[in-house]
Amino acid sequence: MTNVIQRLITAHRVLNREIRAELTRRLPDTARLAQLKKQRLAVKDRLFRLIPDAAEMRRVARTA
């Protein structure tokens, strides 16, 4: 697995954690949520450009 793919998987996981943390707040910041989700989608798009097969992407993400 390349360093680029590893960094993207890590970034996606970090963004997921930040989104979950924001959603658990009493008054979630909707603008921040929108920004985080947009960033997460951009990371996911880059990952799928590098590994277009969804099943292979899941396998790689699990082993990372």
Rank of each mutant, 00 (worst) to 15 (best):
A11G: 03
T2S: 15
D45I: 06
K44S: 08
K44V: 01
T24R: 14
T24W: 05
V14P: 00
A31M: 05
A34K: 13
Q35R: 12
L15Q: 02
I5R: 05
A21V: 01
K44Q: 12
T30C: 03
L8S: 01
Q35S: 12
M1G: 09
R32P: 01
K44P: 01
R32N: 08
Q6Y: 04
Q35V: 08
K38I: 01
F48L: 15
A61T: 06
H12R: 14
I51E: 06
Q39W: 02
A11V: 00
A64C: 13
M1D: 06
A55T: 10
A42F: 06
E18M: 14
R62Y: 09
K38R: 14
I51G: 07
P52G: 08
R49G: 05
I51Y: 04
I5H: 02
L23E: 14
A31D: 10
R25Q: 09
A64R: 07
A54T: 07
P52Y: 03
V43G: 02
Q6C: 05
K37E: 15
L23F: 02
A21P: 00
R58G: 11
R59N: 10
R46T: 10
L47I: 15
L41E: 13
V60G: 04
V4T: 13
N3D: 14
R62V: 09
E22V: 04
T63S: 15
A61I: 07
M1W: 02
V4Y: 00
T2A: 08
Q39C: 05
D29A: 07
L27N: 10
L27F: 14
T30A: 13
R46W: 02
R46H: 09
P28N: 06
T24Y: 07
A42Q: 12
A42Y: 03
Q39K: 11
A34T: 12
Q39N: 11
R7M: 11
R7K: 12
A42L: 10
P52H: 05
L50P: 02
T24M: 13
Q35H: 10
L41N: 12
R25G: 05
R25C: 08
A31G: 09
T24P: 00
L23I: 03
R17L: 10
R17K: 11
T10S: 06
R13C: 03
D29R: 08
E18R: 15
A54V: 10
D53I: 04
